[in-house]
Deep mutational scan, measured.
Amino acid sequence: MQIFVKTLTGKTITSEVEPSDTIENVKAKIQDKEGIPPDQQRLIFAGKQLEDGRTLSDYNIQKESTLHLVLR
């Protein structure tokens, strides 16, 4: 499924993921596309910071959901 990751600069990254993918996994995909190390990434969805060990389905993230990427 496709999800969108919006950066603070307003850029939107499209990523191909599975509901069973972990947040860590998603951060790795963002690193592949943007070159941002996962340890600098914080992903936010519905006002919550997403934890690395959890999966997209844990957070009820569905296709075409938009996550927000904040850098630390």
Rank of each mutant, 00 (worst) to 15 (best):
Q2R: 15
I3N: 01
I3S: 01
I3F: 01
F4A: 04
K6H: 13
K6A: 07
T9S: 13
T9G: 13
T9E: 12
G10D: 04
G10Q: 03
K11F: 10
K11S: 07
K11Q: 09
T12E: 05
I13G: 01
T14R: 10
S15F: 15
S15K: 05
E16N: 11
E16W: 15
E16D: 12
V17N: 04
V17A: 06
V17W: 05
E18G: 08
P19Q: 06
P19V: 08
P19L: 09
P19N: 05
S20Y: 11
S20W: 14
S20C: 09
S20R: 08
S20F: 11
D21M: 11
D21S: 08
D21P: 00
D21R: 02
I23V: 10
I23N: 00
E24A: 15
E24G: 13
N25R: 14
N25V: 14
N25K: 14
N25E: 12
N25S: 15
K27Q: 03
A28D: 06
K29A: 07
K29D: 05
I30V: 06
I30C: 00
I30A: 02
I30H: 01
Q31C: 14
Q31L: 11
Q31M: 13
Q31S: 13
Q31T: 10
D32G: 10
D32P: 03
K33Y: 09
K33R: 10
K33P: 04
E34F: 15
E34D: 06
G35M: 05
I36E: 02
I36S: 04
P37M: 07
P37K: 06
D39M: 09
D39A: 11
R42T: 15
R42P: 00
L43I: 07
L43S: 00
L43Y: 03
L43T: 00
I44F: 15
I44G: 02
F45T: 01
F45M: 04
F45D: 01
A46L: 11
A46T: 05
A46S: 08
A46D: 13
G47Y: 04
G47A: 04
G47P: 01
K48P: 01
K48H: 11
K48C: 09
K48L: 12
Q49W: 14
Q49K: 09
L50I: 03
L50M: 07
E51Y: 06
E51S: 07
D52S: 06
D52F: 04
L56T: 01
S57D: 09
S57M: 12
S57L: 11
S57I: 08
S57N: 09
S57K: 12
D58H: 10
D58P: 00
D58T: 04
D58G: 03
Y59H: 03
Y59W: 01
Y59R: 01
N60E: 07
N60M: 08
I61Q: 00
I61K: 02
I61L: 03
I61S: 01
I61Y: 00
K63I: 05
K63T: 13
E64D: 14
S65F: 08
S65G: 06
L67G: 00
H68P: 00
H68E: 11
H68K: 07
H68Q: 11
H68V: 13
L69K: 00
L69N: 01
L69G: 01
V70Q: 09
V70N: 05
V70D: 06
L71H: 07
L71N: 06
R72F: 12
R72N: 12
R72A: 13
R72K: 13
R72G: 11
R72P: 12
